[in-house]
Amino acid sequence: MNGVHDLGGMHGLGPIDIEQDEPVFHHEWERRVFGMFLPVFATGAFNIDEFRHAIERMGPKYLATSYYEHWLAAFETLLVEKGVISADEFAARRVALAGGMN
């Protein structure tokens, strides 16, 4: 697909932000998303190319979000599409977690 992920040769996306002594992860949630990668694949619910395509289907949000958010978005999309979790139970869990912390 001629998606926003296909970046080679584009102009105007800004300077390269080089972080000295960069940590492997910047947030705890990034650790959890990374750590789920292999276990989620091991369920066999989808393959690596479906995963890549799910990232490419993010649309304009792709450019405004980080690498591990791309992974998260692909997990959400595919796990619901493949029926591993339902959109309703995922939404309900998010509401519970948001409410529980306020």
Partner: peptide, 22 residues
């Protein structure tokens, strides 16, 4: 309060753990 992305990650991981998948 948890950020939106933190909520999504916790929601996903907790559901997958409860289903015995992770």
């Amino acid at each position: 309060p948890l950020s939106d992305v933190e909520i999504r990650v916790k929601a996903l991981e907790s559901l997958l753990v409860e289903k015995g998948l992770v």
